[in-house]
Simulated scan of single mutants.
Amino acid sequence: MTERPRFAGFSHQGTLKYGLVKGDGIVDLSRRHGARWPSLREVIEAGALLRLAEEAVSLEADYPLCDITLEIPIPAPEKLICVGVNFPDRNEEYKDGQAAPSNPSLFIRFPRSFTGHGQPLIRPPESPQLDYEGEIVIVIGKGGRRIPEAEALGHIAALSLCNEGTIRDWVRHAKFNVTQGKNFDRTGSIGPWLIPYTDASQLADIVLETRVNGELRQQDRTSRMIFPFTKIINYISTFTTLVPGDVIVTGTPTGAGARFDPPIWLKPGDVIEVSADGLGTLSNTVADEA
């Protein structure tokens, strides 16, 4: 099977760029196309991901990966929407006797709350309860409102991974609100890259795993999701218009640190790896906020 193209947002000597990962290097596509498409969001809006991948086949890498910093792939999405409680075992954690909900729980995160692959998640001084949540990301390529489920997959441009890091005690500061605990700066990560979406097999039944210091903590399959990707896109687009570059984080399996007895919070030096079939591995360490 031919390796799928991998698009990344990155910074080099303080300048934000985007490119195509080739082996242990990256082709700087922003140097060639940045005037027309300043970021991968505009590339996606133009439907140009696969065209740029074909163009870059004959190009040499401009930088080795060791000379760049990987950033979140879409630097300024109009919307970054997260789905909560989307695996059966995760729903059972709540022990409230309720069956799986009929509609997904949603919340918003800000881009500043995420960092890129290889960078540390930042534990804030306000709480030691930094936790991990491995998830699959879908990026919208074709916008729309009230998108039928039968057409929903055709609106996906690309896939990625997320560690939807959470400050657990801050998600309980209010009665019906998790926003605070989900938006501390650089507590989560997205990456390492975008994989163009071309067929349903890329999402239908893939394994999603999270490891902490090499120990498997989370594992499940997308075929078991309570709300499939088609339902998520249909539901969200009912109340808001989805536009190219919108990022949807689709839910985590059971096994987060909060569910251990006693809870196991992330601490400086820990290594968290989120992996999924065909998408690679998103890896981050942890550091205390300076």
Rank of each mutant, 00 (worst) to 15 (best):
E78V: 02
E78R: 04
K79M: 00
K79I: 00
L80G: 04
I81F: 06
C82V: 11
V83G: 05
G84S: 07
G84Y: 10
V85Y: 03
N86S: 10
N86D: 09
N86R: 02
D89V: 11
R90P: 02
E92G: 04
G97R: 04
A99K: 14
A99C: 08
A99G: 14
A100C: 07
P101H: 08
P101T: 10
N103T: 15
N103D: 15
S105M: 15
F107E: 09
I108A: 10
I108M: 11
F110H: 14
R112L: 13
R112K: 15
R112F: 13
T115S: 07
G116A: 08
H117K: 01
H117P: 03
Q119G: 02
P120K: 00
L121N: 04
L121I: 07
P124I: 12
P125A: 12
P125I: 10
P125F: 10
S127Q: 01
S127I: 05
S127M: 01
P128C: 13
P128M: 13
P128N: 12
L130W: 11
L130T: 11
D131Y: 06
Y132N: 09
Y132T: 10
E133K: 00
G134T: 09
V137G: 06
I138H: 01
V139Q: 06
G141C: 11
G141F: 08
G141R: 07
K142P: 12
K142R: 15
G144L: 02
G144M: 03
R145S: 10
R146Y: 06
I147S: 05
E149T: 08
E149L: 05
E149Y: 00
A150G: 10
A150F: 09
E151M: 09
E151P: 01
A152G: 08
A152L: 05
H155V: 11
I156H: 08
S160K: 00
L161C: 05
C162M: 08
C162W: 01
C162D: 01
N163K: 03
E164Y: 12
E164Q: 15
E164D: 15
E164P: 06
I167W: 10
D169Y: 07
W170A: 14
R172V: 10
R172E: 15
R172H: 14
H173F: 11
H173K: 14
H173E: 11
A174K: 14
K175G: 12
K175W: 13
V178K: 11
T179F: 14
Q180H: 13
K182R: 03
F184V: 09
D185W: 03
D185Y: 03
T187P: 00
G188D: 02
G188N: 04
I190C: 09
W193M: 03
W193P: 01
W193G: 07
I195D: 00
P196H: 00
P196K: 05
Y197T: 04
T198P: 01
T198E: 11
A200E: 14
S201D: 13
Q202A: 09
D205A: 13
I206K: 07
